[in-house]
Nucleic acid binder design. Structure first.
Length: 789
RNA sequence: GGGCCCAUGGUCUAGUGGCUAUGACGUCGCCUUUACACGGCGAAUAUCCCCGGUUCGAGUCCGGGUGGGCCCACCA
């Protein structure tokens, strides 16, 4: 047995162990045909370094992976980075001081791919440092050929099944990014603004007042609406209103979506200010008056404001209204506004041609899919359900950006859609044509849009299972993600899997919470309250930050508390020292089972078995915090504080009982290390290598077998041991109250004599010496007889 | 406006109907005993947010309220 150094140095040991795992391929996906446990993991955006939120959620995923690996599952645990879409585009622009528009899309993609190749290893070094046992070496990038191929195949499959369509309809639009965006990319913020009361008139010149925060949309007004029950405006039904500034005539109609108590109860409908406008425009078949261009400026159709930005136009029109005495009132308000989550720009609605995945007409199937998945914790299912029930738009998957996965699509001169065939993917329509059209290139126009980044990350299961190479799709075991992306990642992945394979993508979905700052607030760079996990690892250890990550109930957010990391670090020390003590004696252990077990050995084995049972069940239900609590409590409270004290005397002074004590020590320490192993993989591996690997003939604790409860333990022993522990507690208290050293011996008379709790006359040393005890308990006193020699 | 989650010693937290409510950090006192002072032992600190109900019994279940967080809707 290896002699252990006095202290465990995580800073040198952890990287060495990580090297060891790599070399021994400990977390490689095993060949053979055993049960597979597959984990669908989120590809993080390749952006600088791992943040604490990553550390928190990936650590939790890793607990699960390691647990099942030790339970002899073949764990498929892929890993990739998401290098697609706007965030990456921005990052590369900034990093290399270039502009995406100066490159051809293909060149820019090549540029990103090159950057990814360079930066991915370093980025993933952070995951390695945390001890994540995913397939880091085989990491994919969502912009690599395989992922592009998978995404394009996904599109073609939906196209064949008529589940995707191109239509020109008002779509939510970001004027800053100059692209369509999806409902899921909205963010709601409170903005200060002005509520303006503006004078319109009816055909007879009588005043009609409306209230608006968006007066610049007045030239886009195409109708005026009131609630059908609103008595004030019944006479206007079928009439026309005259719009100020432009003077054009618009129909007045009743619509039950108008609130009588909001504003003046009379509402202008414009193309388009918001979703309500879009809906009324559809319902009442109104005119289209587009006044904004794609970059958020007033178009030439509105001569007096042409070229002005939206906000500038607002100022100007307010000035004009005031001058013409058409502005009745203006008050300062704050109101909620939908903005693009990436750039905080207010969302507009533009009628543009886009590709949509038809989710609205399949709501029922998608709701049912939610039922077919096990949600952990259960209530997270409701979030999915409500999102699907409240969907208002089909999923717009096209983006008017140069960078991303291209659609495998061309258009003929008469506008018909031409798609690539599946065997020529990935394909870039800007530089290639389908084989069938070779020689007739000039008859085709390439689709210039690229896919939404979610259109590609929604196929992570298909990427992991290599569906694009013709391998069959089999349901994955588990999806692990945080709750903020249920409406995007979880939802879109379910959509794709149901549409492609008519099956839900995973058996289980585990939703984790967020890491928060110590006060329970969201961490953000702008607030300056971010905690860098790399610093925590350097100051303490990966194991101790993992210990912190294991301390919350599933799905709950967890404030970062340094003290929890400190507690983790203390646990490392304790494990180290307790093991060191055991190893001193386990040298003598020959691996045999003793004929009979001593009372206290049976007691600790009973406690140990209970712990294993609880921890195993907890891990199986993804409740790693309960598993951690169980093993923690057993290790500190039972094993170290009591059992090791009880057993010391026998180990040091009494050869007779070695067999029983050594067997117990070996069994319990090994099993305890194993239960700790998924959470604290480094220290447990180090100790396993030092004391057990050879005996068990196993290369790593992480592929060793998960411990089982010891069957043959009697309940009496458990009770007797508890009584003894309690007795020891009383002695400790007795001495503490008298400020005595625990070392001070009591009168020798008490050592071998029967003692009762009433007398309070047991000393520490004598308790430790007791090794063959008969316990009988009565109502008033507990008598312990020792049969010491 | 709709929904979901949460509310436990100073702080964070366990607790999914049953004896004097878990643990950590912090506080105070004591102890260098041959695994560990990066330790051990002991102590103090909780009207388990409030009101009602179900039950032999409620921190735990139900109803209502208050407070916090999140999601959705709300841009007139």
């Amino acid at each position: 047995m290896t002699e252990l150094p006095k202290r465990y140095d995580a800073q040198t040991e952890e990287p060495a162990l990580q090297e060891f795992w790599k070399e021994k391929q400990v977390s490689a996906f095993p060949e053979g045909d055993g049960d597979v446990f597959s984990i669908d993991t989120p590809p993080p955006t390749l952006s600088g370094r791992m943040h604490l939120g990553h550390a928190f959620s990936y650590a939790q995923g890793d607990f699960i992976a390691r647990f099942w690996r030790m339970n002899q599952k073949r764990v498929l645990y892929p890993f990739g980075t998401d290098d697609n879409g706007l965030p990456t585009e921005r990052m590369i622009e900034k990093q290399q001081n270039i502009r995406v528009k100066d490159f051809s899309p293909a060149d820019f993609r090549a540029l990103v791919l090159k950057a990814v190749k360079q930066q991915q290893p370093e980025f993933m070094g952070d995951w390695e440092r945390l001890g994540i046992s995913a397939d880091l070496g085989g990491a994919y990038s969502t912009i690599d050929e395989h992922c592009q191929k998978t995404s394009q195949l996904s599109f073609l499959d939906l196209f064949e099944k008529n589940l995707v369509e191109r239509k020109e309809t008002p779509v939510s639009w970001c004027p800053r990014c100059q692209t369509a965006i999806a409902q899921a990319e909205f963010e709601n913020v409170e903005l200060s603004s002005h509520m303006n009361t503006v004078r319109f008139s009816d055909e007879d010149g009588k005043e009609l007042l409306i209230m608006t925060t968006r007066p610049e949309l007045i030239p886009a007004c195409v109708g005026m609406a009131f609630h059908p029950d609103d008595k004030r405006y019944q006479h206007l039904l079928g009439q026309f209103a005259i719009v100020p500034i432009t003077g054009h005539k618009v129909p007045v109609f009743a619509d039950s979506s108008v609130a009588q108590d909001k504003g003046t109860g009379l509402m202008m409908v414009c193309t388009f200010g918001d979703k309500e406008d879009v809906e009324k425009w559809h319902r009442h078949n109104l005119d289209l008056r587009v006044i904004f261009t794609r970059d958020g400026r007033v178009s030439d159709d509105v001569a007096q404001y042409a070229g002005l930005k939206i906000k500038e136009a607002r100022k100007q029109i307010i000035a004009d209204l005031t001058e013409q005495d058409l502005l009745v009132k203006q008050e300062q308000i704050t109101h909620p506004v939908n903005v693009h989550e990436r750039c905080s720009t207010e969302i507009e609605y533009l009628k543009t041609p886009q590709w949509y995945v038809k989710v609205l007409e399949h709501k029922e199937r998608l709701l049912q899919a939610g039922e077919e998945i096990n949600w952990y914790p259960q209530f997270m299912h409701k979030r999915y359900q409500h999102w699907v029930e409240n969907l208002g738009w089909d999923w717009c998957v096209s983006r008017q950006r140069p960078y991303g996965v291209p659609f495998p699509v061309w258009y003929t001169k008469d506008g018909a859609v031409v798609v690539a065939s599946k065997d020529e993917l990935p394909i870039d329509p800007l530089t290639q044509v389908p084989a069938a059209w070779k020689g007739r290139e000039d008859e085709l126009t390439a689709e210039t849009d690229v896919m939404d980044t979610w259109a590609t990350s929604s196929v992570t299961p298909q990427i992991a299972l290599d569906w694009a190479s013709g391998k069959p799709f089999t349901q994955m075991t588990l999806r692990l993600q945080a709750h903020d992306i249920i409406r995007t990642w979880a939802f879109y992945t379910i959509v794709k899997s149901v549409f492609h394979h008519d099956t839900v993508p995973w058996r289980d979905i585990v939703i984790s919470g967020h890491a928060l700052d110590p006060k329970g607030k969201k961490m953000s760079k702008s607030k300056g309250n971010v905690v860098d996990p790399n610093e925590v690892i350097s100051k303490y250890s990966a194991d101790s930050i993992r210990y912190w990550a294991a301390s919350t109930k599933l799905g709950e957010d967890l404030p970062y508390q340094e003290k929890d990391v400190v507690t983790g670090q203390k646990t490392l020390n304790k494990l180290w020292n307790a093991s060191k003590f055991c190893f001193m004696h386990l040298d003598r252990y020959d691996g045999s089972e003793p004929k009979s077990l001593e009372l206290m050995d049976r007691w600790v084995l009973a406690k140990y078995s209970e712990m294993v049972l609880v921890a195993t069940e907890a891990f199986e239900q993804y409740e790693y915090s309960r598993a951690k609590a169980a093993v923690d409590q057993f290790f500190w409270g039972t094993f170290c504080d009591y059992y090791l004290e009880f057993v010391k005397d026998r180990l040091y002074n009494d050869e007779r009982d070695d067999a029983s004590a050594l067997y117990t020590l070996h069994t319990v320490l090994l099993g305890t290390l194993k239960v700790f192993a998924p959470i604290m993989p480094h220290i447990t591996e180090k100790l396993y290598q030092a004391g057990f690997a050879e005996k068990e003939d196993c290369v790593s604790i992480h592929v060793s077998t998960w411990p089982k409860p010891i069957e043959s333990v009697d309940a009496d022993a458990a009770v007797a041991g508890d009584v003894l522990s309690e007795l020891l507690g009383m002695v400790r208290k007795f001495k503490s109250e008298r400020e005595l050293s625990l070392k001070i011996e009591f009168p020798s008379a008490s050592i071998n004599a029967p003692v009762s709790i009433d007398e309070g006359l047991v000393d520490f040393k004598s308790t430790a010496r007791i090794h063959d005890v008969k316990v009988s308990s009565g109502d008033t006193n507990i008598t312990i007889e020792t049969t010491d020699e």
